[in-house]
Amino acid sequence: MTEKKTIKKSSLDELFKKIKSGGKRILAPVDKNGKILFEEVDSPGSVASDYIQTTLSAKDAVLPRCEEMLRFKTEQSAVAIEENFNTPEPTVIFGVRPCDARSFAVMNAVYTKEYPDVFFKSKIDNTVVIGVSCAKSDEYCFCTSVNGSPGSTEGSDILLTPINTDNYLAEILTDNGKAIVSLAPELFTAAGNEDKAKSLADVKIQFDVKQLEKKLPGIFDSAVWITQSLRCIGCGTCSYVCPACTCFDIQDETDGSKGVRLRCWDSCGFGQFTLHTSGHNPREVQSQRWRQRIMHKFSYQPDQLQVVGCVGCGRCSRACPVDMNILQHIKDILEAQ
């Protein structure tokens, strides 16, 4: 049962102190020369104040862009494998947008169901998510079209909604959330009948994601994939900024006799992603790769894992160097033959 409380914005300073002295680091959105990025902070003073969406999501905290999955030492013909590396740091991520908080469900579905991935799991199990609802949105946002909302509680342990200039409504959603409140219960006051909805951005539903899922298998051979991707340069930026993209590459690096095996973010937008040793490539051209991106997120993942692989954050559209707008493209796909 969700508990509703209020907390003064000015009390966050004290709350951050308590969290830190409780042994957790705090990651929060910080303004780095105009880019809003999650960084470790000591106090709310460092947290960026005015932004619609962070430039990158907090995915990096649980699925780093490059992380060790093996450590080894080679000595002539023998190999020794090291244990106890890549251990998680107890973390509170503050200021996660509700769309991004929903992306943890996609990552969980990929990484914790079959063959649980211990590196992801240990990080997510040591992470508390304090979400902050969206009071503003822009033309790229479409969370409501993919089952989310600017005030969605899904994926957050505590969701803060700014109900006026001085106060947040705090929805305490999980045991992890309760544990944070119990660090400084005096900072929280029982909520009255605060109207959360009036503090939220108005994000209109722009397409029916169920209808999209139904339609996609039938338009695999449509010309729409070619038309839309003619200007795609295959840079992979869309995957890089996506909070729900989870595909990765595995590479070894060595320093003398010591070495590591690394898992690094990868993208289905790259031609090498599927290139066989023989030279055969099942997805030879960019239109096939663009189709894979849409199919995987909106057809295959709903089918395989019962999650939509897109949370409507709009980052791929904002960051695309050739201005491919996913929202417009989805609308066109829904019209395609």
């Binding site: 079959e114 990765f248 595995i250 990868d266 992603f273 057809s299 295959y300 395989q304």
Partner: peptide, 17 residues
């Protein structure tokens, strides 16, 4: 198909569902 993880996570051997 080309694979990296072998256990359904890295994404590259995906064909349809």
């Amino acid at each position: 198909n080309r694979m990296k993880c072998g256990i359904g996570k890295c994404g590259r051997c995906n064909v349809g569902k």
